[in-house]
Design a protein around this nucleic acid. Structure first.
Lengths: 106, 106
DNA sequence: TTGACATGCAGGTATTTGCCTGCATATTTT
DNA sequence: AAAATATGCAGGCAAATACCTGCATGTCAA
């Protein structure tokens, strides 16, 4: 998994909205997704390409349509490998120092 | 919490490295952080400003130094409010459809 | 007080990004 | 086959981004 691509992909609100849309209804076509995204089709395509590069979305061709499916695995991996360690960190010691110092000056 | 700022802040590898550095040793000065980040001090400052804007880092002045502290709360909030719903989603029905369709063409 | 040190401020530039339009291709429908 | 539909490809532009350098300010120590 390329964590950088995942974070980059999530860094844009349009792309997060695309994931939201696919979360509501998986397997939507490009056209369907465009209906909810006040911008040109080609822009949506580019966003979807980035999501696909991050492996957050995979596609299936069905005739002239292209169906888009969300893949939650990279999200979970990013959380498990990266976010988690910040959550359960014992920052308390230095956090107390910080709070103390803040009390001095604020 | 401004989720957009948090995602934006996390979208850059340098800023994630800054969080990593602060995770290893909280309360570091700008100078200390620069030592680990092969780029000009001013660039690091700008990255730290973005992290602060996302409330991922808070600072305390101590004399001529500026101490940087990591704040894991926005990370947890982003996970709880946004990432989580993708993890425990029942994408199975349509996922099965997708798998089936993939089988047809691949 | 003077010099060394830590950071702040103000631009300047090259690259990336997000968006667009115009035309091409592929598939279905009539 | 021809028209309608769904998507792909190529290029172009403005704004944002990630860097930088040079100078200013504030703080500590000799």
């Amino acid at each position: 998994m390329d964590a950088d691509k995942v974070f980059k992909a999530l860094g844009d609100p349009t792309r997060r909205k695309l994931l939201d849309l696919l979360c509501e209804k998986n397997g939507q076509t490009l056209g369907q997704l465009c209906e909810n995204l006040d911008m040109a089709r080609q822009s949506v395509t580019q966003h979807l390409e980035l999501l696909a590069a991050a492996n957050l979305v995979s596609t299936v061709r069905r005739g002239r349509e292209k169906l888009h499916f969300i893949n939650p695995v990279p999200l979970h991996e990013v959380y498990a490998r990266w976010v988690r360690k910040f959550e359960r960190q014992r920052l308390s010691l230095l956090h107390d120092l910080k709070t103390e110092l803040e009390g001095e000056q604020e």
